[in-house]
Write a protein that binds this DNA or RNA. Structure first.
Lengths: 182, 182
DNA sequence: CCTTAGTATATAAAAAATTATATATAATCT
DNA sequence: AGATTATATATAATTTTTTATATACTAAGG
């Protein structure tokens, strides 16, 4: 259950609403940790019950009120404990494309190739997004979540992983397309 | 919900028990699709209710009886429909290591490096497994799930993805370790 | 001016996945 | 000889995640 800690991690920088947490995840961790709006809301509620976070309601005119969450001392401690616990196993992954491929021996070759080319485009687009982001979004995010040099190194590393994964995927798709074509 | 189709895919080759399906997944799709024993059993049960599979009980002496599942015509049709539906989006991933790294600005540098090196070893070990497998396990699996040349190309592609992912991860870890060391 | 997208909130229901158990024999290790 | 691991089954409880809704204002586009 890592979403809990993700939320604690962000709230440790500054108090936020569920909505803001969703936006923040979408522009930062979504490549390696994502969640739906609804999951964030229900998780925050459970976290408040357990005393990891506290919320204050900010009255709004016209809009539904904002429920702003902040981390408690207990939450901060839980976050530290989690951060200190090393990851000792490889992460398991799910790759729908590979799963289908695995069972596609009798399928139409051309349909398969179209699909693989489509996936290649998607990875290419993602690469372009990484490049486009480099200035505007990153600096905006850095202002929202300050942390100095230390953070820059780690954040860049997670972005770099995204870039390398996309590049690797494109290379694999090119190889695979060629092999299927023969 | 792809586990359903994974099980149909395997049962399309030959009837099997939940236990055998788990073993088969572990030596074939586990790098891109995995499931726990319990999930396989409960999914099979639901699939039988929906008429996608049927089961016969084989009496055992001493052991609990074997419930052998086979795919029905309806199940075969569902599998084909699923296989024909192309994957149009990129797969979302979860990477616990990256998530922790992202929030680890204030953490002990040395502990972080130890963890990254540990992960490097795990990927290296997985690479070795891929190499070690090349003869014995693969041929055994090919006998269990026959399918000729067509299958060889696609199965090798999924294995190749595993190899390339491990290599990429090692490269990324080496880079990241170096950057953190400075 | 009307429609669509965006902001800002959520809740309910269903499905998927994990963790914890349970039983009982056979085989292997110490 | 005793303990552990593997084989061969599962079920129950819990947690996590997704899908489907719902409300209501604001801003922008056609």
């Amino acid at each position: 259950m890592s979403l809990k800690y993700t939320l604690l991690g962000f709230l440790n920088y500054q108090p936020m609403t569920g909505y803001e947490l969703k936006q923040t995840m979408d522009i930062s961790t979504s490549n390696f940790w994502h969640a739906k709006q609804s999951q964030i809301y229900t998780t925050l509620k459970k976290m408040e019950e357990k005393g990891l976070v506290m919320s204050d309601i900010e009255e709004q005119n016209g809009r539904p009120n904002r429920r702003v969450y902040k981390v408690t001392e207990s939450g901060r401690a839980a976050l530290q404990t989690w951060l200190k616990k090393p990851v000792m196993e490889l992460q398991a992954h799910k790759e729908l494309l590979l799963l289908k491929l695995f069972f596609s021996a009798d399928q139409d070759k051309q349909a398969l190739l179209t699909q693989l080319n489509w996936q290649r485009d998607l990875h290419q687009q993602r690469l372009a997004v990484y490049q486009g982001e480099t200035k505007a979004v990153i600096e905006q995010f850095a202002r929202m979540m300050p942390g100095g040099e230390q953070n820059a190194v780690l954040w860049n590393a997670t972005r770099r992983f995204g870039v390398m994964f996309a590049q690797m995927s494109i290379k694999w798709l090119d190889e695979t397309i060629k092999k299927i074509e023969d």
